[in-house]
Amino acid sequence: MDHEKREMLRIAEKLGVSVAAVEEEIKNLRLNDLKIVDLLPEMLIMVRSLISSETFLYKRNQIEAVDKGLLISFQNILDKPGDGAGITAGNPDSRPHVRITSSHLESEILFPKDIHVQQITILVELQYLKRFVGSDRNKLYYLFDTDKIFWIEEFMSPEMGILVGQLANLSLENVLSQAFYRLKALELIYMLFSNLLGREKTEYHDLSKDEINAVYLVRNAIASSLDKPPVKDGLVKLSGLNELKLRKIFTQVFGKGIYEYYNHLRMQQAAELLRQDNLSVSEVGYQLGFSNLSYFGRLFEKSYGLKPKKWQHQNAKLFVK
């Protein structure tokens, strides 16, 4: 086993993974890039780009490298901000997004066969984070409740994408690279927390593994047919939860109500189509199920600050292949 894979195993153990359980499977990984910045006991940063030749699943136990902390994972980081390569329509997991979990949450991690995994993972100790945020932590109280087990997913903003790219492309050989990583990681956390302040207000409760899985089933069903509005009864049946509980947990995890989340995905897909597929605004609108193109235009402008035609004209030039 080469040095990079041994280093990955060492860090995996700090992140709650049993080395014995994954030692064979990790031989299937082709590591394109691995950077580890160990700033424990305050923070650990891992940048990795890899492809597995076989699908495998492993369990992550409670993390003991910090007493209490947050595990923040920036998923599907792209080679350059705005690059749509690798984004699959109908699969929100292929889009850049952020997941935040409490360090004492047990979870399962999947490496799909032949899928390019690109991530930045930051483990940050809770007391250190409290000092960084200061009195404003009261606005994000749910992140600092050590008794709660939670799971949050947030869309990655373009500004976060730029900063993530800086972190991913920095060489560990650079002068004061650890100081730079710490600075940029904290800046990234600041941007993320600022985004979280815009989430729909809801109560935060302990979540079980089954409840998390249930809302992801619903989310995936919504994303698989963006041209059709979600049907309440079908989603309730799919989740196995009652309607009220489904709405509460969905909002807790994704920060938006079900219909608002659906429209947000439609706008993201509209932007991808407008800048990559040489489609007209009306063709994009109809493809995403809009019979009223004026409504489509208003919704797009609310999300991106420009009408679709003007946004397409400004952005298409940036993505000419």
Rank of each mutant, 00 (worst) to 15 (best):
M1E: 00
H3M: 07
E7P: 03
E13Q: 13
L15D: 09
G16P: 01
V17G: 07
V17L: 08
E23D: 03
E23R: 07
E23Y: 04
N28M: 01
L31D: 00
N32A: 10
L34A: 03
I36T: 08
V37P: 00
M46L: 05
S49T: 14
E54F: 06
K59N: 07
K68V: 06
Q75W: 10
D83G: 02
I87Y: 09
A89Y: 15
N91Y: 13
P92N: 04
V98R: 02
I100D: 03
T101I: 13
H104P: 04
E108D: 11
L110M: 11
F111I: 11
F111Q: 06
F111K: 07
D114P: 00
V117L: 13
I122W: 07
Q127K: 12
L129R: 04
R131E: 08
F132R: 01
V133F: 10
S135G: 08
R137N: 09
Y142E: 06
Y142D: 03
F144G: 00
T146V: 08
K148R: 08
K148W: 04
W151I: 10
F155G: 12
E159F: 12
V164C: 15
L170Q: 13
L176N: 13
L176S: 14
Q178C: 02
F180D: 09
F180T: 14
Y181C: 01
R182S: 12
K184C: 07
F193C: 06
L196A: 01
L197E: 14
L197P: 08
Y204F: 13
D206H: 15
S208V: 05
I212R: 07
V215C: 00
Y216C: 03
Y216Q: 03
L217V: 03
R219K: 14
P229L: 05
K232W: 04
K232C: 06
L235R: 08
L238D: 00
L246N: 11
I249W: 00
I249E: 00
T251N: 04
G255P: 05
G255L: 01
G257A: 12
E260L: 11
Y261E: 12
Y261D: 12
Q268E: 15
A271V: 03
V281Y: 12
E283T: 14
Y286I: 07
F290V: 13
N292R: 09
L293E: 00
Y295P: 01
G297L: 06
G297M: 06
G297W: 07
L299D: 07
K302H: 10
L306C: 11
L306N: 15
L306Y: 15
W311F: 12
L318W: 13
